[in-house]
């Protein structure tokens, strides 16, 4: 009898905690929406910011964030794809494989500000790219390498053995196997990785705040050495003037745009992942 009462109590406790956690996190989303929505006047996405960001929209900030996202993923994808395929298809030493996996995990856990510091010194100072969108993209490309690698590896390693066997029966060379069988079959996994990478870049602030961004003066970069305005740093600067109601309202608006972007990318990634799981179950 007593045991049952204890069990009920514990159950009640953990169910309450679960409900509370979900409620808390949904509240956070709701607050973001409620705070950000008023700022989203019709042209918020399509207007320049004016008056130190207190008025206008976030057109060029969004553009800057998109530029960094896309370049970073374009730079990172070939390296991620190549290194994973090398590790899964060509490398035979098990020790080396474990070492490379460890490296991926460590890179994945490395605080993002360190990518900013070291990346600025290497790309910005030694390679002389300065504070620019190129420096930022390169830094972010290294930062999302593990994200892409993990997704791609999952897809490649999850490939049913029969595909490979079929390839071998047909007498395909390993390279032919890769671009006839592995790449097409892992397409959805790779796309999932791309979108998760995009989402991670979109949310990153610390690695780019002193390496790639500017607050005003630039709309779109005209050369490789131009910095760009981004949503993330825009929010940071506006948020530090929290007593000015207009600034804060604009910050919430930009926050809502940013989170909308991140969520959209995550949802697309999920859609592709479900597709991948379905394909592999066929």
């Amino acid at each position: 009898m007593k045991a049952k009462a204890v069990e009920k109590l514990v159950l009640g406790m953990i169910s309450t905690i679960t409900v509370l956690v979900v409620a808390l996190l949904i509240t956070i989303l709701a607050v973001l929406f409620v705070k950000g929505y008023p700022a989203l006047h019709s042209g918020f996405l399509f207007e320049e910011s004016r008056d130190f960001g207190r008025a206008g929209g976030v057109l060029y900030q969004s553009a800057g964030t998109l530029i960094l996202m896309i370049t970073a993923v374009l730079l990172s994808l070939p390296v991620a794809l190549g290194s994973v395929l090398y590790q899964t298809e060509y490398l035979s030493s098990g020790k080396l494989k474990t070492f490379l996996m460890q490296l991926t995990y460590i890179l994945n856990a490395t605080p993002t500000i360190l990518f900013g510091l070291v990346g600025y010194l290497f790309f910005g100072v030694y390679l002389d790219a300065g504070v620019s969108w190129v420096t930022g993209s390169l830094i972010l490309a290294v930062m999302i390498l593990p994200t892409l690698q993990v997704s791609i590896r999952e897809a490649v390693e999850g490939l049913p053995e029969k595909y490979r066997e079929a390839g071998m029966v047909l007498g395909l060379t390993r390279s032919a196997q890769i671009y006839r069988i592995i790449l097409p079959q892992c397409f959805y996994g790779i796309v999932t990785g791309i979108f998760l990478g995009l989402a991670r870049v979109a949310g990153e602030t610390a690695a780019i705040m002193f390496t790639a961004t500017t607050f005003s003066g630039i709309q779109l970069p005209q050369s490789y050495s131009d910095p760009v305005p981004t949503l993330q740093t825009h929010i940071l600067i506006l948020a530090q003037e929290a007593v000015n109601p207009e600034s804060l309202a604009q910050a919430w608006g930009a926050g809502l745009v940013l989170i909308g972007l991140v969520f959209m990318l995550t949802l697309v990634a999920w859609a592709f992942r479900t597709r991948m799981v379905m394909e592999s179950e066929l």
């Binding site: 979109a202 602030t205 929010i235 948020a239 929290a242």
Partner: peptide, 17 residues
């Protein structure tokens, strides 16, 4: 999973406000 992806800057904004 959606929340795990919310950017740090957004949490910062919530934090100071």
């Amino acid at each position: 999973e959606l929340l795990a992806g919310v950017p740090g800057i957004i949490y910062g904004l919530l934090g100071i406000s």
